[in-house]
């Protein structure tokens, strides 16, 4: 009793909060911290698997890192392309999914059906179904999915000259980089749609958690739909934009060539040390990107409190 009385309210709150995260913390220290330490250890050593099971480690210092950046033929290139793809995809997917969530959030007939359809990419991109689909990939080759990937060529042959539009937009004085970005986005529209299933659902949930009273106030004050969006909806959705960005970055990273390269190096070439180096470098790079992006958004984020 005496001990409890000595605690201040802030300390009490801290202890309760700590209790809330305790299960996670135990799990993290037990499983993840161990794996991070092991990965770091592997990346600094040369690992040889013993024939009877188990392994021996030989400390080689930064040799693996030196090899990854100096000696390895493709690692640097793959890393930069993966990061580049990530940076291109993230804004596209974020805005696209926010836009779709806004459309889906309104009440209209057939909403359940449409929402179920928009949920399909989440299922289709999950492991078991994706691997099953890959097995029967040849079926999809003639399907709709591949059609849009060749949109540019197809449109050219179909009588609509894409060159003409590009010319028109350049004549309007739009920077060439922007046009290329948009053209790239249009030609990969099916990929973007299929990569934004999760994000759309997160945004729908975000939109639904906005108190209705806010919209009432906005209406009474005479705000137009445009103003309501920018002054109410957007700030309230802002915290979840961070979630979506984090998810998108990680999602594009998980499927990226860097991770594949690390996986192949570990399980095909049995070079665990180098594989750990690849994993570690790419994880650090991704974390750095997340840190910068999240800082940038967090500064502009409004939290209710």
């Amino acid at each position: 009793m005496k001990k409890k009385k000595k605690l201040t309210l802030i300390q009490k709150r801290a202890i309760t909060g700590f209790l809330f995260i305790l299960p996670w913390l135990i799990g993290f220290l037990w499983f993840y911290a161990k794996s991070i330490i092991m990965t770091t250890q592997f990346s600094l050593s040369e690992l040889t698997v013993k024939p009877g099971g188990g392994y021996t480690l030989k400390f080689v210092g930064l040799e693996n890192f030196r090899f990854a950046f100096r000696g390895h033929g493709t690692f640097k290139q793959i890393l930069t392309t993966s990061v580049g793809d990530m940076l291109i995809d993230v804004p596209l997917i974020t805005f696209f999914s926010l836009f779709m969530a806004l459309l889906l959030n309104k009440k209209f007939k057939g909403r359940t059906l449409i929402r179920a359809i928009f949920f399909l990419p989440v299922i289709l991109n999950s492991e078991a179904i994706r691997s099953a689909m890959e097995m029967s990939r040849s079926l999809l080759a003639g399907g709709v999915a591949s059609a849009s990937a060749e949109l540019v060529e197809a449109a050219g042959s179909g009588g609509v000259s894409v060159e003409y539009y590009i010319q028109m937009f350049t004549n309007l004085g739009l920077p060439m980089g922007l046009i290329e970005y948009i053209m790239g986005a249009v030609s990969r529209i099916s990929e973007i749609i299929n990569a934004s299933g999760v994000q759309i659902i997160i945004f729908i949930a975000a939109l639904q958690s906005i108190p209705g009273s806010m919209y009432e106030v906005a209406k009474i004050e005479g705000a137009t739909g445009y103003e309501t969006f920018w002054k109410v909806t957007f700030p309230m959705v802002m915290p979840h934009i961070i979630t979506v960005v984090v998810y998108t970055v990680v999602d594009s990273f998980v499927d990226s060539q860097v991770v594949n390269l690390a996986y192949e190096t570990a399980f095909d070439q049995k070079n665990y040390g180098l594989s750990s180096t690849f994993s570690l470098v790419s994880t650090v790079v991704t974390c750095a990107i997340l840190l910068v992006v999240c800082r940038f958004i967090q500064k502009r984020t409004f939290y209710y409190n």
Binding site: F31, Y32, S35, F253, Y263, F267, S279, C287, L290
Partner: peptide, 11 residues
Amino acid sequence: VLMIVLPTHTI
């Protein structure tokens, strides 16, 4: 965040 980012094959 590290838990989200860490590639699954490392664990």
